[in-house]
Every structure is written in C-alpha cells, then in structure tokens.
Simulated assay, not measured.
Amino acid sequence: MTITITAFERSPDGGQGLARDTRVRWALEEVGQPYEVRLVSFTAMKEPAHLALHPFGQIPTFEEGDLALFETGAIVFHIAQRHAGLLPDDANARARAITWMFAALSTVEPPILELGSARFLESDKSWSAQRMPLVKDRVRDRLTQLSARLGDADWLDGPFSAGDLMMVSVLLRLKASGLLDEYPNLSAYVARGEARPAYKRAFEAQLAVNKPPAG
C-alpha cells in the first residue's frame, strides 16, 4: 500500500525544514519507506476533505490503505513501530526512546513555540520587550536540563532513535534565535541529526517544493 502524506503547497518557512511534514519525511527516509506527497493550500486545509483527515485543519496527515493519521508524534510513532530502524528491540530501551519522543513534544517544544509566537506575533506589543527575556529564560531552563542529560553522548539513549528524531526536529526551531549556540553539546547534537543521510533527503524534498520557479 502506498503511503501518502500531506504538506504545505507553500511552506511558511520557505522550505527550511521547520514545517512538521519534514519530521514525517525524515522518519520514512530512516526506515526506507517510499511515500507520496499531496500538497495542500492554506484554503484547502480548512475545507471538508482535509478536515476529514485532520480535524484541526493542519498538516501533515498520513494515509496508508484504510488508515489515516494526524499529529506528527502519532505518525512518527506509528512508522517507528511498523518498520525497523527507529526503535530499539530491547523492551526497556524501546520504552525510553518513546519517552524521549513525548519529552520532545510535551516538555521541550512548548516554550520554543512560545518564543516563536513572541518574536513573530507579539513583537509590536507595548509589553513585548519586557516579556521577551522571560520567554527566553523558559527556553534556557529546558535547554540547560537537556544539555546536562545529553552530556557528551552522541544521542539521548544509546543509538539514534525516534526520540532523537523528534528532539532534533524540535531544537531546529531555535537555530535562528542563537539560543542553541549557548549549549555547544546541543548544537553539535542537532548538527549530527542534520548530517544523517535520511534527514538530508527529507530536507531536500521539502525544499524542492518551495523553490521559486526558474526564469
């Protein structure tokens, strides 16, 4: 059965790998599964056909036969369960890798998303300058904890796993802010993720959609 995912027809990030379909593309590339992409406009995302797949009108979605999924965490978890390469065989190590997936999305990503909102949606507010240091410090709190846990290891818990895939994907949102540079081991960790051939293929696939036409 052919796997089909949805992605932005024109990504807000211009194809820099921050749209969440990149996480799903990366997971599929890691496990060697071919897939097709159906591009969706911002208008079509709010129409009944897409809302039947994603009730919140977002991307990506995942379709394979009779199965339709939404939410990147659920999609990557499904891929990792179905195909070897993203979760360890050992039951305890597998459980820890899944825990890191949840940690990336539930603990580390929320303050990073808050920072994005503060920078791009609230910068014109009278209180923005006073609030921004507090928002950044909340991000630093999480990065300090994560940095201490990672230490000098290559990955969070043994070999690369779906937990690392999700964590690197979340941390990539910080590259433009400069905050990641304050933690050399986390910056190196993200660079290792970006250097993986599967990530490079996923990034290039997403970028290709967003390149302006030649001429």
Rank of each mutant, 00 (worst) to 15 (best):
R82W: 01
W127R: 10
T144S: 14
R119L: 15
S106H: 04
R138W: 02
L121E: 00
L143R: 09
T107W: 02
S117Y: 14
P111D: 06
D90M: 10
E122L: 15
I79A: 01
D89G: 11
S106F: 03
L115V: 07
Q81W: 05
I79E: 00
S147E: 01
R82F: 08
L105C: 07
A80L: 08
A148M: 11
L121F: 15
R96M: 06
D141H: 14
S117W: 13
L105D: 04
A91H: 11
V135D: 04
A148I: 10
S106G: 13
L113D: 03
M101Y: 04
D141Y: 10
A104R: 08
S123E: 06
P110I: 09
I79W: 05
A97E: 05
F77G: 00
D137R: 15
A103F: 12
P133T: 14
D89Q: 15
P111Q: 14
T107F: 03
A84W: 08
Q81V: 02
A129Y: 11
T107G: 07
L143Y: 10
A129P: 01
A95K: 12
A103T: 12
A118Y: 10
R94T: 04
P133I: 14
L143N: 05
A80V: 06
A95L: 14
P133E: 10
T144P: 01
D141M: 09
L113H: 07
R119T: 07
A118I: 09
S117T: 15
L143P: 02
Q130I: 04
V139H: 08
F120N: 01
K125P: 00
S128G: 07
